[in-house]
Design a protein around this nucleic acid. Structure first.
Length: 352
DNA sequence: AAATCGGGGAG
DNA sequence: CTCCCAGATTT
């Protein structure tokens, strides 16, 4: 009976009944108000954005108010949202609109994208939601909806996949009600076609959704390829003195565990005891090797090998160099220890 | 603990 | 071009 309704017709009918039409930026949806909301929504979900948005609008009611503000104040109102480069772009773009476009937002897609922080999708959202221009959007929610409904395989970040998604976005664009259609797409992705546990029973386009028909909702969109994590390795020297304390040194402020305290690392081409003597000034002998383990960072993995050493002949004066302490792990103080270091210290405590 | 999100900037 | 990043939140 409803088999002949198009994608956009079904979506719009659902939107008219269930879509959100009372969000702050939907009231008197000017390009300025929509733009600010879109930038905030790129990084944060609706429920969090609302209060930030209202404070922001109360202070900067129009683009001229924003353009003439101090960046510091803009950042202050952004505090807690994260992605502070976007607040800087927002401020710069406001000044751009005032100086180049005399305070009036551009009305075509190309010009809109000259604003810092505004790419194709954000430009299209502003034009369609505020001015009813029929330009398709493609944010994360919409990519998920299309990838599932049309059964588009492949990671959406991949150029070829992105091209297919944009093509689909163009062909499905509603020319009769562009604004509500784009809002409906975003609402569908945010409320029903969610990343985990989508509520397909309530979806207006479930009838011809490729993912649902193939029970592939959880596989689409294809997740980002797990990049092969580089594997590094290190040997940590747990040097224990006569009082049962462990030598820790403060790491350089840059790089992993910057500024945190950790046992000295033995370079691969050094004998551990020689390294202790010549680089740390400590005479120590290896007692045993502790069980090694693998620690996963966001961008690499680290195989950690740990040697337990004991100082010889009361040697516990250390050389100049990085900040070093003999640390009593039974009486932990306030210094920062990386998780793997805590784990190593704990294993020494439990099994000395 | 891992994935995420649209655009900018580096390589 | 292609790759990588921000950074708080969600799962």
């Amino acid at each position: 009976m409803t088999a002949h309704l198009s994608f956009s017709e079904r979506l719009l009918a659902w939107f008219d009944r269930h879509g959100r039409k009372d969000l702050p930026w939907q009231q008197s949806a000017t390009p300025y108000r929509v733009w600010v909301s879109e930038i905030m929504l790129q990084q944060t979900q609706v429920s969090t954005v609302i209060s930030y948005y209202q404070r922001f609008m109360a202070r900067f009611p129009d683009v001229r108010a924003l353009a003439s503000a101090e960046l510091d104040e803009v950042l202050h109102l952004w505090s807690g949202l994260g992605y502070y480069a976007r607040a800087r772009h927002l401020h710069a773009a406001a000044q751009h609109v005032c100086s180049v476009y005399d305070g009036v937002f551009p009305t075509d897609l190309e010009a809109m994208q000259t604003l810092p922080g505004v790419g194709r999708s954000t430009a299209a959202a502003i034009l369609s939601l505020a001015s009813g221009v029929a330009e398709p959007i493609l944010d994360g929610n919409v990519k998920r909806v299309f990838a599932r409904h049309a059964g588009i395989d492949g990671w959406p970040g991949d150029v070829a996949v992105q091209r297919r998604l944009w093509a689909l976005a163009e062909t499905r664009m509603s020319t009769t009600r562009p604004g509500p259609y784009n809002q409906a797409l975003m609402d569908l992705g945010a409320t029903l076609c969610t990343r985990a546990q989508p509520r397909c029973e309530q979806c207006p386009v479930r009838g011809d959704c490729v993912a649902r028909l193939g029970a592939r909702q959880s596989e689409l969109p294809t997740p980002r390829p797990r990049r092969v994590q580089p594997l590094r390795s290190t040997t940590m020297l747990l040097v224990e003195n006569a009082e049962g304390r462990i030598l820790l040194e403060q790491r350089l402020p840059v790089g992993i565990w910057g500024g945190l305290w950790a046992p000295p690392e033995c370079p691969p081409d050094w004998e551990p005891t020689a390294f202790c003597h010549e680089r740390l000034g400590v005479v120590a002998a290896v007692i045993r090797e502790l069980p090694g383990f693998r620690h996963t960072f966001s961008h690499f993995q680290l195989d950690i090998r740990a040697l337990h050493l004991r100082t010889q002949g009361g040697s516990d004066r250390v050389m100049e160099g990085p900040e070093r302490v003999w640390y009593n792990s039974r009486l932990p103080d306030a210094r920062g220890l990386a998780a793997p270091v805590q784990r190593l210290l704990a294993s020494l405590r439990d099994e000395p």
